[in-house]
Computed example of a mutant assay.
Amino acid sequence: MPTFEDEEPLAFDAVQLPRRADAPRLNQVRGTLLRRIEIVDQHGERRDIDIPAERPLTVFVDKRELVTLMTLGAAPGLLVLGYLLNQDLIRHASDVESIDVDWSVDAAAVKTHRGIDGLAEKTARRVVTTGCGQGTVFGDAMAQIGAVQLPTSQSARIAQDTLLRILELMKSRNSVHRQAGSVHGCALFSGTEMLVFVEDVGRHNAIDSIAGWMAVHGIDGGDKVFYTTGRLTSEMVMKSAHMGVPIIVSRNGVTAMGHELAGKLGMTLFGRAAGRHFLCYCGFERFDADPMPCAPAQALAAD
């Protein structure tokens, strides 16, 4: 039986769905995911290991330089499209005619149908975000709260057995992180079915790639669950809400601002979620809990 190390890890994996007729043309040129280097370990032994091949991707919109994203390059066209959508620089995927990625010059050329109104004004204010990849948000993300429309708790819910199955599926994936570490993974679920999985050097890139995939295929987020290995900051919560996904599961924790924003939007956040353990931070009304009996103190100490 092959081991994970014998297989090529999948940093992008998605179910096959038809594209929207008005979706932009994307040349999905995947970058090289891993680079092999020599290391010396704590025993003084030399050996070869794989590390993620981070690279810059400079985005040009209608020949104007916009931003440089540091990325693994697993789904660059979707990443750029999702970035434009989540930054509210475009409203619909159909606003874009094409996205061409050329790794020989580390650039992505975006061609829109009618340009982006007020692009200079929209990009004048930059906020450097937290953590991996040092993301950038243009404008005031908090100002978008009033425009977000999420489904009610009656139509968008998650049961505890569904949550535990999602955690089990994520643990079993053959991933770049399992083989080489140093990346974040995000996924979109419909029930217990994984629709799309993306890994990148930053959680921001991974969620943007999922947003791009949803837009290309016309996927509604109202009945979906978003999973991430990264912590739930205000930006991650806002992006999930912008995608219409009201339920987020994270292997990590949540910041105070992320928690406050999710509460205002009526979202459900799960954190510290791994194995059969989790914390539901807010949005309890969307959660159909099935509490497990408390383990004896001795068992808890051994866990």
Rank of each mutant, 00 (worst) to 15 (best):
F4A: 08
E5G: 09
D6L: 11
E7A: 09
E8D: 09
L10Q: 10
A11E: 01
A11R: 00
F12S: 12
V15H: 02
P18H: 11
P18D: 12
R20T: 09
D22A: 12
V29R: 13
T32P: 13
T32C: 14
L34D: 04
I37K: 08
Q42W: 13
D48P: 01
D48N: 11
I51E: 10
P52A: 11
E54D: 11
V59K: 11
D62W: 08
D62K: 04
L69A: 08
M70V: 08
G73S: 12
G73L: 05
P76Y: 12
V80F: 03
L85Q: 02
L85H: 03
N86G: 07
A93Q: 01
E97M: 06
I99F: 06
V101L: 11
S104G: 06
S104A: 13
V105F: 15
V105C: 10
A107C: 09
A107K: 09
A107D: 04
K111A: 12
T112S: 08
I116W: 03
D117H: 15
L119I: 14
L119Y: 07
E121Y: 10
T130D: 10
T130I: 13
G135Y: 00
F138W: 10
G139H: 08
D140C: 06
A141P: 02
A143M: 07
A147G: 14
V148W: 09
L150R: 03
L150N: 04
A156S: 11
I158M: 03
A159E: 15
Q160G: 12
L169Q: 05
M170Y: 01
S172H: 13
R173T: 00
N174C: 14
R178S: 06
A180P: 13
G181T: 01
F197M: 00
V198C: 04
V201F: 01
G202K: 00
R203N: 10
R203M: 07
R203I: 15
N205W: 01
I207Q: 02
G212T: 00
A215Y: 09
V216A: 13
H217R: 15
H217C: 14
G218E: 07
D220H: 11
D223W: 05
V225P: 02
V225M: 01
T228G: 09
G230S: 14
L232P: 01
E235P: 02
M236C: 00
M238Y: 03
P246Q: 05
I247A: 01
I248G: 00
S250A: 15
S250E: 07
N252G: 07
G258E: 07
L261Q: 10
G263V: 06
L265D: 05
L265C: 05
L265T: 04
G266W: 04
A274S: 10
A274Q: 07
G275Y: 02
G283L: 07
F287L: 05
F287D: 06
P293Y: 06
A295C: 11
P296S: 13
A302V: 13
